[in-house]
């Protein structure tokens, strides 16, 4: 579904991603792991048009998307849930969700999707008029995911959704990711938490210094001391 070939991203004279090639099959959950500075967030920003690649190809459902503006990626169905939630803190939960559908004009569809968001995240319903910045970290993560879903994505790119959340909330987040995948959503999950990645993903790729250093089944990662030691510093 999402096919990345020989992707190269450069910031000034620094090569952040080097010849990265991997794919995200339709209906799957793929994890992209790596330590700080390995290029994970740059990868997601490139896959959502925030960063322009210097070379390589990003094909989504067979159509080349490299170089498109961010809006083009959203319109084609690739939407990012950014690291650190990045909700609009002074706006209400309802407004945050509403603006997730900013590229759409099917008003009845937007209204019914809004109702659906409160079914997926019932904890948000009583807070829908509250400022998003006043919610807890877990609730803000729900708003961020709901906002992305309002664009009706086919492929969701999640940047460290477990970061900064309490362990109990992380467990809820894992359930949410699996539930979204069961609804047919393809997910590329960027994580530092290898436990979360192993719990939800089928495949995993490890980025190290901007290159894919390991690719394989996600379940094997936790039991692979060589992988943990070499690439994640454990």
């Amino acid at each position: 579904m999402l096919d990345i070939q020989h992707l190269r991203v450069v910031y000034g004279i620094t090569e952040v991603l080097r010849d990265v090639t991997f794919d995200v099959p339709q209906g799957s959950i793929v994890a992209l792991l790596g330590g700080n500075g390995s290029g994970k967030t740059t990868m997601l920003n490139t896959l959502t048009g925030m960063v322009k690649p210097a070379a390589g190809s990003i094909r989504f459902e067979g159509i080349e998307c490299a170089g498109l503006p961010a809006k083009g990626f959203v319109q084609r169905g690739i939407v990012q849930v950014p690291q650190g939630r990045e909700v609009w803190p002074s706006m209400s939960v309802h407004e945050n969700l509403e603006l997730g559908a900013v590229t759409r004009k099917d008003w009845p569809g937007i209204r019914s999707d809004m109702e659906e968001m409160f079914e997926i995240f019932p904890k948000l319903k009583p807070h829908q008029r509250k400022r998003a910045g006043a919610l807890s970290g877990g609730e803000q993560q729900m708003v961020a995911i709901g906002r992305a879903l309002m664009a009706r994505p086919k492929c969701l790119l999640m940047d460290e959704p477990s970061a900064g959340l309490a362990p109990a909330i992380v467990s809820d987040m894992v359930d949410t990711i699996l539930a979204l995948n069961r609804r047919g959503l393809t997910i590329l999950l960027v994580e530092q938490n290898i436990g979360v990645a192993a719990a939800v993903a089928e495949y995993a790729h490890i980025l190290q210094n901007g290159e894919i250093a390991f690719s394989g089944a996600a379940a094997g990662l936790v039991d692979n001391p060589a992988v943990l030691g070499a690439y994640l510093g454990r």
Binding site: P69, A70, K71, V74, V79, P82, E86, M91, T103
Partner: peptide, 23 residues
């Protein structure tokens, strides 16, 4: 208005605004 909310969202967090497709 939708445009007014878009302007508020951009003022609040421009990166998040770009990510949902706001120019």
């Amino acid at each position: 208005t939708r445009i007014g909310k878009i302007m508020r969202a951009t003022a609040d967090n421009a990166k998040a605004a770009t990510l949902v497709g706001i120019s």
